[in-house]
């Protein structure tokens, strides 16, 4: 496999797809600079520099997708989807239903997401739970290069709209551009494990709606995604030395969600811990708990999530994110007395 991190694997998948499919155009702020290779290869008619007008260019991409193109829209960060939310929520996601299933919007929205580098609360959000709550969208978040390639390749052959979030901590180009910014004086806790998710072919398609089992275990099922998978694996290694056996499930596709994989694992362990970099309330963690209840299971349950607006200061951000210490404590508590992480009142 060529040496690719998650971001470069994503870039590669886009490049390969653009070479195959002339209908693909890429639209984004600074696209010529950020995607210089694609810009030089495919030219300004297929790689379009957008003004800072997310509402306009995501809305226009929807129209273009309806009329025969296959746009890839890049946002600088998923936080900025707020500016363009109408296009996604009310148009892109609803077209299929509104047209009686006749018309779909083959569009890929690529957006970097997540924190761990101190960029403040408008530039560090996950938001995948919010996006995955919308019927009509597919929402995927890779945690490995192979999944980044495979999910992107699948998305660019999918007939409906796909939101693909790219964890910035796992994509060297983003971390360098937004966190390091040319400095050698800052450090980031980038996961070092070379876990490829058990995927032998780094250029294979990855289907939507299939979780990946990253580690087998018998005591606790940890469901996570993105950076959380790596933090969970690290916690699982520590916990195994303490005699707690954790199974780590990388959800990677939030909508559709692999309910069967979650249920099968929780049926085995009887304990469920959701590690989610998104907000705790009304989101993915509650959804995963609910689906086990719907399947007739009554697992001991805990969750390690983001509970308030992410603070800017690195040490405060680290504490607010699902770090290894929080995961370890929550899993250990589940095994010890079933209570999991105690839940304080949510902060504003």
């Amino acid at each position: 496999m060529p040496e690719m991190d998650l971001g470069k694997a994503l870039d590669r998948a886009i490049d390969d797809a653009m070479a195959r499919d002339d209908a693909i155009v890429l639209i984004g702020e600074d696209a010529p600079m950020l995607r210089g290779g694609l810009f030089a290869r495919y030219g300004p008619e297929r790689v379009l520099a957008a003004p800072i007008s997310e509402g306009a260019f995501l809305g226009a991409a929807a129209g273009a997708a309806m009329a025969g193109l296959r746009p890839i829209v890049e946002l600088y960060m998923v936080d900025f989807v707020a500016v363009a939310f109408d296009a996604l929520l009310n148009h892109i996601a609803k077209l299929e239903t509104f047209s009686g299933g006749d018309w779909r919007c083959p569009l890929l929205l690529r957006a970097p997401c997540g924190g761990w580098y101190g960029d403040g609360g408008q530039h560090s959000q996950a938001l995948w739970g919010t996006l995955a709550s919308i019927p009509g969208l597919t929402v995927v978040v890779p945690s490995t290069p192979a999944d980044a390639y495979g999910l992107t390749a699948t998305a660019l052959e999918h007939e409906g709209p796909v939101v693909l979030l790219e964890p910035k901590l796992l994509a060297a180009d983003w971390l360098n551009a937004l966190g390091r910014c040319g400095r050698d004086s800052v450090r980031f806790d980038v996961p070092q494990d070379d876990d490829d998710g058990g995927n032998d072919d780094p250029l294979a398609r990855v289907p939507f709606g299939r979780a990946a089992l990253r580690r087998e275990g018998s005591d606790v099922t940890i469901c996570s995604l993105a950076v959380g998978v790596h933090r969970s694996l690290e916690a699982a290694r520590v916990l195994s030395e303490e005699g707690v056996s954790c199974e780590v499930l990388d959800l990677r596709s939030l909508r559709p969600l692999d309910r069967e994989a979650v249920v099968a694992s929780v049926r085995k362990t009887g304990r469920l811990l959701v590690v989610d970099e998104d907000y705790r309330e009304c989101g993915l963690s509650g959804e995963v708990a609910a689906l086990t209840l719907e399947a007739g299971l009554r697992p001991r349950f805990a969750r390690v999530c983001v509970e308030g607006t992410l603070p800017y200061a690195r040490h405060l951000e680290e504490a607010a994110l699902p770090n290894v210490g929080r995961i370890r404590a929550a899993a250990a508590a589940l095994v010890a007395d079933g209570s999991g992480e105690t839940a304080p009142a949510p902060r504003a």
Binding site: P32, G36, G37, A40, R41, Y42, G43, P44, E45
Partner: peptide, 28 residues
């Protein structure tokens, strides 16, 4: 790395015509 990406993109087979690639490189 950025310069290399542009050079390699412009030189990779498949993609836009010579004119299209020239436009992209000239813009950059």
């Amino acid at each position: 790395a950025r310069v290399q990406r542009v050079v390699s993109g412009a030189a990779t087979r498949g993609g836009g015509s010579i004119g299209t690639r020239a436009l992209g490189v000239a813009h950059l």
